[in-house]
Write a protein that binds this DNA or RNA. Structure first.
Lengths: 188, 188
DNA sequence: CGACTATTTGAAACGATTCAAACCCGGTGG
DNA sequence: CCACCGGGTTTGAATCGTTTCAAATAGTCG
């Protein structure tokens, strides 16, 4: 675990290798994962005095740590740095709104399809195989990201397998077989 | 309607009076409202070339319109303006994550309770009566904001009324009677 | 007052969850 | 080398919360 919701937000990180999940918890333990970070992503930017979410490594992780005070000084020196981070925050906001649509209005099948397609696009944009997905998260993580239970995630993926939409080499290796039909299921 | 998802994003607005809802639609018409804007709020900031959501007035509205090109020029001139907008974007991101937790993990009762409490806090922070809520949105809007149906919103509020948590002077006027117990139901 | 729309309420249906058990797989020690 | 363990995963059956469909009621505006 990297830090917890409520911890004083002294640092901003830039992930250089590995993968991180950020999430919020309810008092009774229910969890909502709000994002999976990949190398290049920033962590802790939105925080003011305290982090508003918890962050936990999914794999071994390397990151660049900046004291928040230093960052503020850099903003004064290099306005285009702040400009870039502003863009990044806006991009995240757009993604967050997509995720709200997913959480509030999509069925389990649509959620899983959207998730797999987005993961494929993300991997493609970093130069990976477009249809060969390497999942860095467990079924439980996927469930808590999509607002489902582990069982529903598992069942839905089994169904997709039976329908020939995906195939599964191992627990963490998924292949998208019919991406177009997958995007239809995603409804967006 | 002010603009539609996909429209070219020529303007940024600052709402001066009235209230606006922003939302995303699925091809089949399902709708997710991602925010209700109140005077002082910005609209269209996150957009790059095209708006990523639609915006619609809930009441009569007055707003300040900036051409996007002008705004970019202002950033060069007044770096602290961009700094302020960066802060605002970060605050919105924090709210968006709260909303994801709500949509993904809260029950209908918890959603409605959270919604009413947040509305009360928002109104309080603008100097209104803390327990006397003036709803600017319909039951349908509330449903599409919370990922519920109109009927569930209505039923849940009736239940709260029966339990003495709220009282209803008219359709748009709600009074929070037991705010503490309300916050307990909100689970956050 | 009458017509139209939004809201409330009720009953049935459905999708996702819960609870339970079986399975798979990598790691450990006999 | 293989039996065993423990975690995560898959599958099944029953249950539950929310939705859907339908009808009644309340509210708004001409």
């Amino acid at each position: 675990m990297l830090f917890h919701e409520g911890d004083s937000a002294e640092s901003v990180f830039n992930l250089t290798s590995g993968s991180i999940k950020i999430y919020k918890l309810l008092p009774d333990g229910r969890r909502q994962i709000t994002g999976f970070l990949m190398p290049g992503d920033f962590l802790g930017l939105a925080a003011k005095s305290a982090y508003s979410y918890s962050a936990e490594a999914s794999t071994a992780v390397e990151a660049c740590r900046f004291p928040r005070s230093r960052l503020d000084a850099l903003f004064g020196q290099f306005p285009q740095l702040e400009h870039r981070l502003f863009q990044i925050a806006n991009d995240e906001l757009v993604l967050a709104q997509d995720q709200m649509l997913l959480l509030g209005r999509k069925s389990a099948g649509e959620k899983i399809a959207s998730f797999l397609v987005r993961l494929a696009e993300r991997q493609e944009s970093r130069g990976g195989e477009p249809d060969h997905l390497a999942l860095t998260m467990t079924r439980g993580d996927i469930a808590d990201y999509l607002g489902l239970t582990i069982e529903t995630v598992s069942r839905t993926m089994s169904q997709f397998k039976k329908q020939g939409l995906i195939s599964q080499k191992s627990l963490t290796e998924i292949e998208l077989i019919d991406r177009d039909q997958m995007m239809d299921r995603a409804e967006s």
